[in-house]
């Protein structure tokens, strides 16, 4: 967890013009989506499955149709 704290980027405040220029998405809409994504990534660890490896391993379905 400590490692993750270090890597985690600070929560984005208002984007300034320079940051917008660097962003790969070009449109205004793309920028809005990017800002929302950053916010989401800031909070997502709270909802993600706690043991990803075990969760993925145990998700086994029978074929259907």
């Amino acid at each position: 967890m400590a490692e993750r704290e270090q890597i985690r980027k600070p929560a984005p405040a208002k984007k300034d013009a320079e940051e917008i220029d660097e962003a790969p998405a070009t449109s205004e809409k793309g920028e809005k989506i990017k800002a929302e994504l950053d916010d989401l990534l800031d909070e997502i660890d709270d909802v993600l499955e706690t043991n990803a490896e075990e969760f993925v391993r145990s998700y086994v379905q029978k074929g259907g149709e």
């Binding site: 086994v60 379905q61 029978k62 259907g64 149709e65």
Partner: peptide
């Protein structure tokens, strides 16, 4: 399921 089993 990511393991080769699919449902439609």
């Amino acid at each position: 399921d990511g393991k080769g089993n699919s449902y439609g």
